[in-house]
Computed example of a mutant assay.
Amino acid sequence: MEAHLDYRSKNVIVLLVLIVSLSATLVQPVAAQKVKLALYYEALCDASAIFLTFHLSKIFDNNLIDIVDLKLSPYGNAKLGSNGTILCQHGEWECRLNTVEACAINAWPVDDHFKFIYCVESLSLADKYSEWKTCFQKLKLDPKDVTDCVTSGLGYKVSFHG
């Protein structure tokens, strides 16, 4: 006698096989991989500053940063002109602060550069962006690597050429 299975029985068997396979996979150790998160933003943009300071900052507060590979890119709507000049949506100050923040990213690990960017963007929301250098002292961060990056031209490269 040949046993015939209807489609519901076949689905139950397939489901059981999947559950057993999944259970076996969960028992085996899995190499820890971080979730990749890239954020392209721009200085002097209220929407960017609000997102960074009120939302993204929470991944540091609740330690989700431990499982996130965060890549910040302060480029925004900047455009390279035909003669190599940079034009930013919010003017010269945006270009300057994008470069400063890119240099901070280049100079420090994620915890430090995010704190610095958070400080600069908070000043931006308070319309005090020209006071960005006070963030070094507030956070007890050595400004040398960032200021050297900005003044040497490296800031241009890390900001607009990756």
Rank of each mutant, 00 (worst) to 15 (best):
H55S: 14
K115Q: 13
F54S: 15
Q33V: 13
V100S: 03
K36H: 11
L139I: 05
L37S: 03
F116W: 07
A38R: 11
L139H: 10
Y75W: 12
W93I: 04
K58L: 12
K79T: 13
Y40S: 08
E101A: 06
V100L: 10
L139K: 10
L64W: 13
C103T: 03
L52F: 08
H55Y: 14
F54H: 14
K58Y: 06
S130A: 10
Y129H: 13
D66V: 00
W108N: 04
C103K: 06
N62M: 04
K34I: 03
S82T: 09
C95N: 01
L123I: 04
R96N: 09
C103L: 05
L87H: 14
D61F: 05
F114A: 02
H113W: 04
Q89T: 13
I117C: 06
A104L: 03
T85F: 01
Q28N: 10
F51Y: 15
V27K: 14
C135I: 04
S48G: 06
Q137R: 13
C88W: 00
L97W: 05
N106S: 14
D61Q: 15
L125N: 04
I65A: 04
H55A: 10
N62A: 04
A102T: 05
V120T: 09
C135K: 07
Y129E: 08
Y75S: 01
A49M: 09
I65E: 02
K79I: 09
K71M: 09
D112Q: 15
L56P: 05
Y118E: 12
C95K: 00
C149G: 07
I117D: 03
L39W: 05
S130I: 12
N106A: 11
I117N: 08
G84A: 01
W108T: 00
